[in-house]
């Protein structure tokens, strides 16, 4: 269990998350959504233990995240930042192996499993500069998987991907959840959250305005409250599309 208890976060001198409580369960995909500046990425950083709470706490299996050794925390929680930021033109295999740093071992089996899970074996010797956007996103996720964390926290992992790669990456994340890992992703696209998440947290101005299964947490009235937009859902469960009209009056 990864739980925020009355969490408040301050970033750059500004309160970005306020009084937020939520218990996240392993084996599920939780989506964090909200308008720009709602505090989604900050919340993810807080849940990953990378932004210290100014009030409240984040608990991992009953222990405060802040009290864990950074390495222990890193073994339990894998974090995938939004912008792919790779300083050196290393080979795919070396980059994925960086996921083993918290364990201080080579973890060859785990690295191989991560490469296999994301179909990266044919690319293993290729320098990252020669990868397409979709391949790069898979490599960065494989880096997280190589650490075999209990929790995978990803900030807009679909942002740079085309539709087919988005679906492929979501299928991988679903596989991780099915194998018992907890998956928490920040999403911009509400339809993706509606169709692929088990639970949705809706943030506005740093506060939780809805929390629950996508059908209730992304109901039209919540969208009107959060984004100020009149919208309705079309299609059947699992393949719904959002039709946004005009600004909500």
């Amino acid at each position: 269990m990864l739980a925020a208890e009355n969490l408040a976060l301050v970033r750059g001198g500004k309160r970005v998350v306020e009084g937020l409580s939520a218990e996240l369960r392993p084996g599920t995909i939780t989506a964090i959504v909200g308008p720009n500046g709602a505090g989604k990425s900050s919340l993810l950083l807080g849940l990953a233990g990378l932004l210290a709470p100014s009030e409240g706490s984040v608990m991992l299996e009953g222990a405060a995240l802040a009290s864990l050794h950074p390495r222990g925390r890193a073994q339990a929680i894998g974090y995938l930042p939004q912008t792919p930021d790779i300083a050196w033109d290393v080979a795919v295999e070396s980059l994925v192996a960086l996921g083993r740093l918290p364990w201080r071992d080579r973890g060859t089996a785990a690295v191989e499993a991560a490469l296999a899970a994301l179909d990266l074996q044919p690319l293993r010797h290729r320098p990252v500069s020669q990868l397409s956007g979709g391949e790069r996103a898979r490599v960065l996720l494989a880096r997280v998987l190589a650490g075999q964390p209990q929790w995978i926290l990803a900030d807009e992992p679909l942002a740079a991907l085309d539709l087919a790669h988005q679906l492929a990456l979501l299928a991988h994340l679903r596989g991780c959840a099915a194998s018992g890992q907890g998956v928490v992703i920040v999403l911009h696209d509400l339809a993706t959250a509606m169709n692929h998440a088990d639970r949705v947290l809706v943030l506005k101005d740093g506060r939780l305005i809805a929390d629950g299964p996508p059908q209730t947490a992304l109901a039209p009235q919540v969208i009107a409250q959060g984004w100020g937009v009149d919208a309705r859902w079309l299609g059947e469960a699992g393949a719904q599309a959002l039709i946004a009209g005009r600004a909500a009056g």
């Binding site: 950083l45 950074p70 073994q75 929680i77 912008t83 930021d85 960086l98 918290p102």
Partner: peptide, 20 residues
């Protein structure tokens, strides 16, 4: 040396890997 390797992925990702 190994902490510098972690920085290859940027500061936030490096801290998520346990970098102090």
């Amino acid at each position: 040396a190994r902490s510098l390797d972690a920085l290859t992925l940027g500061e936030e990702a490096a801290r998520s890997l346990g970098l102090n």
